[in-house]
Write a protein that binds this DNA or RNA. Sequence first.
DNA 1: AGTTAATGATACCATAATAGTATCATATGT
DNA 2: ACATATGATACTATTATGGTATCATTAACT
Lengths: 132, 132
Amino acid sequence: MKLITRDTDYALRAVCFIAKNKERLYPVSSLVKNLRIPGPFLRKLLQVLHNKGILNSFKGKGGGFSLAKPPEDIFLTDIMHIFQGEFCLNECSLGKGICPHTKDCPLRERILRIEKYVRKELSSVAVASLIK
Amino acid sequence: MKLITRDTDYALRAVCFIAKNKERLYPVSSLVKNLRIPGPFLRKLLQVLHNKGILNSFKGKGGGFSLAKPPEDIFLTDIMHIFQGEFCLNECSLGKGICPHTKDCPLRERILRIEKYVRKELSSVAVASLIK
DNA sequence: AGTTAATGATACCATAATAGTATCATATGT
DNA sequence: ACATATGATACTATTATGGTATCATTAACT
Ligand code: FES
Ligand code: FES
């Protein structure tokens, strides 16, 4: 079981790499060389990050990507949320609304507690803290 | 993201149901009626639980499944382990051995901490505590 | 103006994991 | 013998994942 999927992992690596030199523009080709991530795939991910306001992008010759905000303000949870959706550990396999135990299920209680803890831990991780 | 997969969830429900009446034998057909889980699928799961020593099974007319040990000694983690393998949150998407950061990766450290916590929480959940 | 190097948008594809079915063999109580 | 159960295992359908391919657009540099 992975807490962090490949999408998120790749994206995070790229963001961290870009964050190390805030001024420069990094075209996908340059990131590919440094990070060894399949080009077209990485490109797709960066486009998403751009649409979500994490990265700036500049088209045309000499263009590329840069951070859209300071690395202190980009959190692991932001990127996880973009690629993995709402973080939620406690989905009952009987659907919500179907399951008659949702209210008093003892397992649910416990998993909610775990979820809360994990969420707290992850939300304290900023990109800035990962690039030192 | 689910901490507990459908396999585990179904299996756990079945085990809990069986645990409520330790003496009786429950054939799959009876569990299907009570738990609304697809029959052939549940059957497969129960066979696995039997092979792993969680359930007893008795063939032939009047046969079925029963617990192989007291519900205090069956843990959520046992069932998770059977259907979901070793619990591990921190798989780096660069493979182990490939990733040059494995030693000093700041993310890895944090995720290991989370993993430890979650593991501890889950391992305290016995079937006995779920059937009251 | 034309070429080159970049992203934007989106459709497509291949593989693997998940969820579930089907079948035949074997055992057992009546 | 027959009905009812599990054992073992092969098969299948659906979805998620990981990745490609293509065409359009934009911009710098001759
Ligand atoms: S069984 Fe549905 S919420 Fe726990
Ligand atoms: S990047 Fe590989 S262990 Fe963190």
